[in-house]
Design a protein around this nucleic acid. Structure first.
Length: 466
RNA sequence: GGCGGCAUAGCCAAGCGGUAAGGCACGGGUCUGCAACACCCUUACCACCGGUUCGAUUCCGGUUGCCGCCUCCA
């Protein structure tokens, strides 16, 4: 079996073949750190973290790089408004990013390079482009000569002449062609800046990714990913810069995730419907958020609405319950050989279904269906009078592993039961034995008020936090 | 104007040539002292019109309706 993934460059699903066997070099465009990230920013982080996890599950060693854009116009503006140093502001939001994203179950990247740590590399890279005739200096700025790069438009599938029609025409432009884009921007008075052969200034937006990807991963990488909107111009420009400089293919596979809408509307500042992860994760379990986002294929839009998130939460709860119930039964089961084989086969079947779905362009929606099916089988198995420890353990391991790939781990069973709660459960059992249901219900209600939900089974009473 | 995406049950969402996965919600059962959890059952003329095919939700053409990029943007 091989992994197929949709490549924006060819507009086709292709078989994934890494440059180096067993290893994946992956670069995901990261955030501009001038504010907390919103749920739209969170989507690519979650989607590509999941893809990374699956590649690792498949045995690949993934070198995963995701940058921080820590200097640009928006940052400078925000720092001015808050009367804060650029460095302080970005440091704050980088820390906030890590908190948000970690709450969402995303692993830390192999490297999180920052633009400001690579200024020298960027300057060198720009110089190469100038030397090769792909860039020119103009009044302290440096621009990329777009028409000079033959393949321009190959990612977004636009011809350069059509792009020109749509390009914004700037008054008194210091660019020789409207399609040219900035590699280096000269500093205005008082702005944060670095010395360069072209005077004080700072890098343009696109150049950073080209440079950092090259520095950390090499001239050619396997997968370059980001939001759909980055296809043009950002990724198109990255290709132009990198391939012009190295003469080699920049990235073999380009992956782009779809947008998130809020109640069927685009998230935008004018509509005032931005949802920050920082805020929403106080209201909605971040695990639910992640599970919800993964319930839709990464290339399709996700509509973020309260009731849809709730319905995802109910679904997740069902999987969690199956898992907890397996754990509960494990404590009271012995080794049996009966029917084990057929149940183990059912588990294997769902693991296969999960892998098949993920192999097909990381179809998490389908993969989740396999997990639901696995939970269902587990519940059916739990209906049996006698259960086998090994089978239960296999169910548990499979669920752990598959949910682990999705980055949605199970709540660990809370072993610390208050002695008092234990005593109450025992008292209730006795009451039930004596058919004293008034007392029995009283205890159940009391515990419920304290967040403990009791469930009676043929194998005794189990409880969970509700 | 250029490039592209989407339209599947009450809702969400897979499938993409052989008469429709999964989840949520609803209804009916079973289990239970009553519950809860769970299980079983029930629910789709795949936007419309043509074409290709033995056969299309799935391919091709067209229509309608949403949406994205082309300008900072995940």
């Amino acid at each position: 079996m091989s992994i197929q993934l949709y490549n924006t460059l060819t507009r086709k699903k292709e078989r994934f073949v890494p440059i180096e066997e067993g290893k994946v070099k992956m670069y995901v465009c990261g955030p501009t750190v001038y504010n907390y990230i919103h749920i739209g920013n969170a989507r690519p982080v979650i989607a590509f973290d999941t893809i990374r996890r699956y590649l690792e599950y498949r045995g690949y060693e993934v070198n995963y790089v995701s940058n921080f854009t820590d200097v640009d116009d928006k940052i400078i503006k925000a720092a001015n408004e808050l009367n804060e140093e650029v460095g302080e502001l970005t440091e704050r939001f980088i820390a906030a990013y890590h908190e948000d994203v970690s709450a969402l179950g995303c692993e830390v990247a192999t490297a999180h390079p920052r633009v400001t740590e690579h200024i020298d590399d960027i300057v060198d890279f720009i110089q190469v482009l100038i030397d090769k005739g792909f860039a020119y200096e103009s009044q302290g700025d440096v621009y990329f000569r777009t028409r000079q790069f033959e393949g321009y438009g190959k990612l977004s599938h636009q011809s350069i002449d059509e792009l020109k029609v749509g390009a914004r025409v700037e008054e008194n432009s210091i660019k020789t062609d409207p399609l040219d884009f900035a590699l280096w921007k000269s500093a205005k008075e008082g702005e944060i800046s670095w010395d360069s052969p072209w005077g004080k200034g700072r890098p343009g937006w696109h150049i950073e990714c080209s440079v950092m990807a090259k520095q950390l991963l090499g001239d050619t990488i396997d997968i370059h990913a980001g939001g759909q909107d980055l296809t043009f111009p950002h990724h198109e420009n990255e290709i132009a810069q990198s391939e012009a400089a190295t003469g080699k293919t920049f990235a073999n596979y380009w992956m782009h995730n779809g947008y998130i809408n809020i109640d069927n509307e685009k998230m935008s500042k004018s509509l005032g419907n931005f949802i920050l992860v920082h805020d929403i994760r106080k209201q909605i379990d971040p695990k639910v958020l992640r599970f919800f986002m993964l319930s839709v294929h990464y290339r399709h839009p996700v509509n973020f609405a309260q009731e849809l998130v709730e319905s995802a939460a109910n679904g997740l709860e069902r999987i969690q319950t199956a898992y907890s119930n397996l754990q509960h039964r494990l404590t009271i089961s012995a080794d049996l050989a009966e029917n084990s084989e057929s149940w183990l086969n059912k588990i294997k079947e769902q693991i296969n279904a999960f892998e098949k779905s993920m192999d097909d362009d990381f179809n998490t929606a389908n993969a989740i269906a396999a997990i639901f099916e696995l939970s269902k089988q587990a519940n059916v198995y739990l209906l049996e009078k006698n259960t086998d420890r090994h089978v239960l353990q296999q169910f548990i391991d499979a669920l752990d592993q598959l949910m682990g790939v999705l980055g949605v781990p199970f709540d660990s069973a809370d072993e610390l039961v208050d002695n008092e709660i234990d005593a109450l459960i025992q008292e209730r059992l006795d009451a039930r034995k004596n058919r004293d249901f008034a007392r029995s219900d009283e205890i159940r209600d009391e515990l419920k008020a304290r967040g403990i939900i009791l469930e009676d089974t043929a194998q005794g009473t189990r409880w969970k936090r509700g």
